[in-house]
């Protein structure tokens, strides 16, 4: 599975409770759409760490890295290439 599919499916299943791909666009803000809340973000971080073998530092928990599917994918690819 590509990273995109993995991340999308996780968000769809765990926050939107659906497998309908049209429910989530890659550039929509997870915060503005009400998809992520303060406990949701911690679960997302644990998922990314487990799934992609990365360590998310506290200072990286910012909207630029985690607020949309696209920003998450970019963040993962930057982290993995470090």
């Amino acid at each position: 599975m590509s990273n995109e599919v993995t991340v999308r499916n996780y968000i769809l299943e765990n926050y939107l409770f659906t497998d309908d791909q049209s429910a989530l666009s890659n550039d929509s803000s997870l915060l503005d759409e009400g998809i992520l809340d303060s406990t949701g973000i911690l679960e997302l971080v644990v998922f990314l760490e487990d799934e992609f073998g990365i360590k998310v530092d506290d200072h990286e928990m910012v909207p630029e890295n985690l607020d949309s599917v696209n920003s998450i994918l970019k963040y993962i690819s930057n982290k993995s290439s470090q």
Partner: peptide
């Protein structure tokens, strides 16, 4: 702040 979803910017 809008929320505590992203703690780092709040800190």
């Amino acid at each position: 702040e809008k929320s505590f979803v992203f703690p780092a910017p709040v800190f």
